[in-house]
Simulated scan of single mutants.
Amino acid sequence: MSSDISYTTEEIAKMLKISKLTVYDLIKKGELPSYRVGKQMRVDATDFEAYKQRAKGIKTVPQILPAAEHAQHPSTTVGNGMRPIVITGQDISLDILVKYMEKKISGIRPLREYVGSLDSLISMYRGEADIVSTHLLDGDTGEYNIPYIRKLLVGSSYMVVNLLSRNAGLYVQKGNPLGLQSWSDLSRPGLRLMNREKGSGARVLLDEQLRLHGIKQQQLNGYELEQTNHIGVAAKVASGEADAGVGIEKAAAIVGQVDFIPLIEERYDLVMLKTADNMPWIQSLLDILRSEEFRKELKAIAGYDLSRTGGILFET
């Protein structure tokens, strides 16, 4: 029976040929009713079909669920008044933050989306995300994030808050057989690179360093080869499929059998739009970031500098 079928947000995105962020935007707007199963959001097939009919301009009759069936879905978007909050980014610190938000902030339902820094800011500009994490280096100023935020969120009122700082640099094979020590070493003939996808902070970091050191992308063997996360890049280097890749220190420790050359400390910040609807939970989020309980949990993870966690770095 169709009433027994449900879809994940990934399945909805594939069927509609849209991004998962756009699916979350439909959920946020109440156009696509959803509910949570564990950490996963699901949409009933009947609600999905009703949405498609409405999108085609066909009037639909609201479905009246039997009381017993309705009780199985107590957390639907419309029924419980919970406001979905889309949080983008890939660091494990965000998963920990979501856990605290679910526990400490009432009336919201955090939704995680694993999107790179630049794409995250673009999604916020489009109104598809509420909290975006970003680590984008501006090579000309040496500043992280704010130059990009100011250009992309023109006309918006927003707040930039530090989540943490962490080391970024090069993954190299165990023992560093090629003796790679700096960004300029990427110009060596024959060096095999594993890259990140466009829009990610690591990709921007690499491109900025290539520009600053006068290295052309065409010089790098493997520049066009992409992985969608730090662990994927580190794993390719560890397996010997690449000589080097750009990423963060923590991923090297997770993968093992790969060495890490720290070259820069990057700032990992959160961006939130300052709207009337957002301000109540923004203050609660700041309280979480500044709490000893939250910081203590992050301190247990190696490689994080929490000296500025919760500090407001820029505000319009």
Rank of each mutant, 00 (worst) to 15 (best):
L97Y: 00
Y100L: 08
D47R: 00
K52S: 08
A50L: 04
E69N: 07
P110G: 03
D91V: 15
G81D: 09
T76P: 01
M101R: 01
H70K: 14
I92Q: 15
Y114C: 09
T76K: 01
A50H: 11
Q63K: 15
G89M: 07
R109E: 13
P74N: 04
A67L: 11
L111R: 01
I85P: 07
E102P: 05
I96C: 11
K103T: 13
F48R: 00
I87F: 04
P110M: 00
H70P: 06
A55T: 09
M101F: 04
S93W: 00
I96E: 14
Q90L: 15
G79T: 12
E102C: 10
I105C: 02
T60H: 01
V61C: 06
I92E: 15
G79W: 05
I87P: 09
K56R: 12
G81I: 07
Q53L: 13
Q53V: 04
D95K: 04
P110W: 01
S106G: 10
P74H: 02
A50R: 10
G57L: 02
G89C: 06
I92C: 12
M101H: 03
P62V: 05
A68E: 14
A67Q: 12
Q53A: 12
L94Y: 02
Q72D: 10
A55K: 13
D91R: 03
P84N: 01
I105W: 02
S106L: 09
V115L: 06
H73C: 05
P74A: 03
G57M: 02
M101P: 06
K59T: 13
R83N: 08
G79N: 08
K52D: 08
H70W: 10
D95L: 10
Q53M: 11
T88R: 00
V86F: 05
I108G: 00
I58S: 03
P84C: 00
